[in-house]
Write a protein that binds this DNA or RNA. Structure first.
Lengths: 316, 316
DNA sequence: GCTTGACTTGAACATATGTAACGTTCAATA
DNA sequence: TATTGAACGTTACATATGTTCAAGTCAAGC
C-alpha cells in the first residue's frame, strides 16, 4: 500500500516536497513520515535539511515586526528610501550569510515568473544568488550580471542550480588599462548586457567598505598599497568597484576607467536597486551610498540600522 | 546587556517575530534564544507554537511538486480550470483543516494590501479564514461574506483577529418564507454587500455534499427528512446553500428562494472563484460544481484529485 | 579483477523539543 | 483580607531530532 506511494515518487524533489508538506504543514514526525513513505527516518531528516538549505523550504514570518518596524520607518524617512528591511541583530553571527537569506526572502516574495534580476558583486550578493537559485529556476527567473568578472558569478551559481536563463558580461571586472576597457565597452556583447542589467526588474548590489580586509582588496582588484591613497582622496567605500566619498559623490579616479560594469550614476536613476549590506565596519560606506541615492531599497541588520539613524540624527 | 533587548521588546508580537527569526532563519536552539532574550526555554517553545498556529510563522514549499504537478495539470485540462492546487494525501487526516491551510497559503501568496476577499460558508472556509486572519490584518485585507448567517462567520473570526475591515451580510442564511427573502434582497444594506462580494479580488467557497451528515444538514438549514426528496430531484451537492445536479445545473427549488446569498450563476461569471473541498464523500458534488463552472480555481487533496480525473476519464 | 574515492546508508549516541504536573506570582474581586 | 483564576516558571520525563562514524555501494580508472 504505502510502497506504492514511495514507488510512484519518481524524482527526489517530489519526494522532498511531500516530506516537507507532511512535516511542516501536517506536523507528522520524521518517523511517521518515514513509515508512510518507506524511508529511513534519517533520510527524512536529511531531505528536510537539504530542502531548507536550497530554499525549497522557506519559513516566512508574517509580522510587521519582522524586522524592526521603527528602524525601517526611520531609515525610509531619513534617507528617502523606497523600502527598508531590517533583520534582528545576532552578535557574532555570520552577517553576510544572514543578510543573503533576508535578501533572498525579499526577492522571493517579489519576483514573478519571467522577471529578470541583475546582480552585483560581493559575498552577500553571492549568498543571496545561491539561496535564490532553486526557486528562481522554478519560476523561470533570469539573472544578468552588472559587471565583468565572470568567475565571481559562476562560483555562486554552480551550487545553486540557476537554470539556463543566465547572462554574464563577457569581460573581466577590472582590466589593465583604459584602452582595453574602452574597447570592451564598445562591444555590443558587453553593452547589451549592461543595458539589460539596467532594465532588469531589480538590481541587487552589495556595498563595500574601504580597508585592508575589504573584499575589493582581498579579491585583488585593489592592492593593499592603494588603499591609503584612495582614502586620502576621500573614498569611504564602493559599489560595483566604483568608489565614492562620504557624501555619496563618485570619485573621479583613473581606476574607474578600467572597471567593466554599470555606472553608479545610472543606478541612481532606477528605483529598483536593492542594496544589501550590514556590519558596523561598513557604516560609513553604507551611509555614503544612501546619501548618493545609489539604492532605493536597503536590506541591513538591526545594529547597522541603529547606527545609520544615529548618524543621520547627528548630522541634522 | 541582553536584558535591554528583552526590555526594549514592547509587544508580544515583536518578541515572537524575533524568536521566530532566530529559530527558523538562524538555526539557534530554543535554549540559546531563551538565554539571549532572557526567556524561559518553555516560553520560547510556546511562542513558536503560537506563531505557527496563528499563521505568523508560515512555511512555504517552493517546488513544482508542491502538490502533484501531474494531477494539477490534469485537473486544469479536464475541467477547464484556471488553476488547481493539490495537496498530498494523508489517510485519516483532518481534511478540512489541511485544506484550509492550503487555501490560506494560496491566498497569502496572492492577496495584495488593500485587496478584498469574499468568503462563503462551511468548515473548510472557516478554517481558512482563521488561518488567514493575522496576516490579512497586517496587510489591510478586507473580508466580505457571500451569504447571510452572520454567526457562522463571526465564529471563525473571533479567534483570528481580522481587523476592522470586515463586512457581513446583515441577514440570516435561510429565512422562513420567500416573502421575507424578497424583502431582504431588496434592502440596499444587503444587496450592496452581495455586489461587493462579487467584485472582490477572490471569492472563496466550499462545496457541500448531500447526505445525513453533511454540513447543511448538521447546521440545521436542511432537515434530515429533506435530504431524500432533494436527492430524488437530482441534487448531489451544494455551494452557498444552493443545490445542483450531477451535471452542474442549479436546481429549481423553492428552498433556493429562501436563501440569502449570491447566486451560483453569478459566480460562474467570475474567474476568481476559489473552491476548496476534498474527500471522496464530496466527489460527486465537486465534480458537478466543476462541470457547472461555478469555480475556476480548485484546491483539493491528492485522493480526490485522482478520483476526479478517473471520473472524467470514464465519462469520455 | 582490483583499487580508489565519492557517495549513500544505518546504528548509536548526544541534544533538543514537547508535555504534563505542580508551584509561584500577581492582580482582580468578593 | 482572603480567594480565585490566569499567566508564567520549574522540574522531570518521554520523544523527536541532529550528528557522528563505521560499513556498504557503486562507478571510474588502472
Amino acid at each position: 500500500m504505502n510502497e506504492h506511494v514511495a514507488d510512484a515518487v519518481d524524482s527526489e524533489e517530489e519526494l522532498l516536497a511531500r516530506v516537507a508538506w507532511y512535516y511542516y504543514h501536517d506536523g507528522l514526525t520524521q518517523n511517521e513520515i518515514g513509515d508512510r513513505l518507506n524511508l529511513n527516518r534519517i533520510k527524512v531528516s536529511r531531505l528536510l535539511e537539504a530542502g531548507r538549505r536550497t530554499g525549497v523550504i522557506d519559513v516566512k514570518i508574517n509580522s510587521r515586526y519582522q524586522g524592526c518596524l521603527l528602524l525601517e520607518e526611520g531609515l525610509r524617512a531619513r534617507y528617502g528610501l523606497g523600502e527598508a528591511y531590517v533583520i534582528p541583530a545576532l552578535p557574532g553571527g555570520q552577517e553576510s550569510e544572514r543578510l543573503g537569506q533576508a535578501a533572498a526572502q525579499f526577492l522571493m516574495q517579489r519576483l514573478r515568473p519571467g522577471d529578470l534580476l541583475a546582480a552585483g558583486w560581493g559575498a552577500t550578493v553571492s549568498s543571496t544568488i545561491q539561496k535564490l537559485g532553486h526557486v528562481a529556476n522554478e519560476r523561470g527567473i533570469g539573472l544578468v550580471s552588472m559587471t565583468g568578472g565572470v568567475s565571481t558569478y559562476v562560483d555562486g551559481m554552480r551550487a545553486a542550480n540557476w537554470g539556463s536563463n543566465v547572462h554574464l558580461v563577457p569581460a573581466p571586472l577590472v582590466v589593465r588599462n583604459p584602452e582595453i576597457a574602452k574597447f570592451l565597452l564598445a562591444e555590443p556583447a558587453v553593452t547589451n548586457l549592461l543595458d539589460m542589467a539596467l532594465d532588469a526588474t531589480y538590481q541587487l548590489v552589495g556595498i563595500g567598505e574601504l580597508g585592508q580586509s575589504s573584499t575589493v582588496v582581498r579579491s585583488g582588484h585593489i592592492s593593499p598599497d592603494e588603499v591609503e591613497p584612495l582614502r586620502r582622496k576621500g573614498a569611504v567605500g564602493d559599489m560595483l568597484c566604483r568608489f565614492f566619498n562620504r557624501d555619496g559623490t563618485v570619485l573621479d579616479l583613473p581606476f574607474h576607467e578600467r572597471v567593466i560594469g554599470v555606472q553608479l550614476e545610472a543606478l541612481a536613476q532606477s528605483s529598483k536597486v536593492i542594496a544589501v549590506a550590514g556590519g558596523l565596519g561598513k557604516l560609513a560606506a553604507i551611509r555614503a551610498a544612501l546619501l548618493g541615492r545609489f539604492a532605493s531599497i536597503l536590506i541591513t541588520d538591526e545594529t547597522t540600522a541603529e547606527a545609520l539613524l544615529a548618524a543621520a540624527e547627528e548630522d541634522k
